[in-house]
């Protein structure tokens, strides 16, 4: 055992932060606040789950924020203007976003391009397309929206576990199981270790790349639907910069930006840490909400530095002779 695993450090930071906040504002330690925190960050948790797969596989997906934005506009227009039944609209946008991700994955693999560039192009493409659909905010009045918004599991202490929070928790748990327990998950780690070696060892690298980006875009699509539930509208400027919050959550959650290591659980904790900072600032009431960004920035720095130290520590025993391991 050499040091703490990164996830554990993230968990300790979260718990310590929560205790500190609760000491100052005892009300924070209530199911109501915690449930609100989950609801407010539901879309972030969903999209960050997909991003975790991408980053562990050694890639990056900058397009997720734009896909969320496009999804909200598409869903709003489909329901309000084109008269689609909401469920049909949801199915259509999920198929569309999955195809979009698959296409980016295919381009990355076939042309051997850096994911950064390909998904950057995807980001502009999706954002541009959403402006093409509508430049103004489109309110959604379909009955399903009020039904979903009103639905909640009541918890003791006044907390309301909303539908979107439940969707997020299901996706996080499903994502964690997919990553840890399946062959797909093992291959994601393998790809992050080394694409060349993984391919030599029999992993179908091309197929995997396509599926990973498909998963990320699909989850971004789901996050978009959740976001439209949350705001009750479709707007082409929504979720601008969310890809960066997402990457921050993944990294704070202990996933290596270079790939090969990380976990969905860690990412979820990273999302909660960001949410906690936001909650603290809301409670304080005097701080500018931009302090969230500053605190996130400081945390990111700290975690990246920590990762470098961990990597350096992990490398050291490799030069020791056999038998020295335990």
């Amino acid at each position: 055992m050499k040091g703490l695993p990164p996830v554990l450090i993230t968990a300790i930071v979260l718990v310590a932060g929560f205790v500190l906040c609760a000491l100052q504002f005892p009300n924070i330690a209530s199911t109501r606040v915690v449930c609100n925190l989950l609801t407010d960050n539901a879309f972030l948790g969903i999209v960050a789950t997909g991003m975790t797969f991408v980053i562990i596989s050694g890639g990056i997906d900058l397009s997720v924020g734009s896909v969320i934005g496009f999804t909200t506009v598409f869903v709003a227009l489909a329901i309000e203007r084109w008269g689609m039944p909401p469920l049909v609209a949801f199915a259509a946008i999920l198929a569309l976003s999955a195809a979009f991700g698959a296409a980016m994955g295919a381009v990355i693999h076939l042309f051997d391009l850096p994911p950064f560039i390909v998904t950057l192009a995807g980001m502009f493409l999706a954002r541009g397309a959403s402006f093409l659909l509508s430049t103004e905010s489109v309110p959604i009045t379909a009955p399903i929206y009020s039904t979903v918004s009103d639905f909640a599991l009541r918890l003791p202490g006044g907390g309301r576990l909303t539908a979107v929070a439940i969707i997020m928790l299901v996706i996080v748990i499903g994502g964690a199981l997919l990553l840890q327990l399946t062959r797909f998950g093992a291959n994601v780690y393998a790809l992050g270790g080394s694409r060349v070696t993984a391919s030599l060892m029999g992993v179908a690298v091309g197929k995997m790349t396509i599926r990973i980006y498909m998963l990320s875009s699909l989850l971004a699509g789901i996050a978009g639907i959740v976001f439209s539930f949350y705001t009750g509208a479709g707007y082409s400027l929504s979720a601008v910069g969310v890809e960066l919050d997402t990457i921050a959550a993944v990294v704070i959650g202990g996933t290596l930006l270079t790939g090969g290591q990380g976990s969905v659980v860690g990412t979820f904790l990273g999302v909660l840490i960001q949410g906690l900072i936001q909650t603290y600032i809301n409670f304080d009431g005097t701080l500018s909400s931009w302090w969230t960004k500053i605190a996130t920035g400081v945390l990111l720095f700290a975690f990246i530095a920590l990762q470098q130290v961990m990597i350096a520590l992990a490398r050291r025993p490799a030069v020791r002779p056999a038998g020295a391991t335990s």
Binding site: A186, Y189, A190, G192, G193, S194, T197, A198, L200, M201, G260, Q261, A318
Partner: peptide, 11 residues
């Protein structure tokens, strides 16, 4: 030519 980040068993 193996993957150092995976467990021995996974490799």
């Amino acid at each position: 030519n193996l993957l150092p980040n995976l467990s021995v068993a996974q490799n």
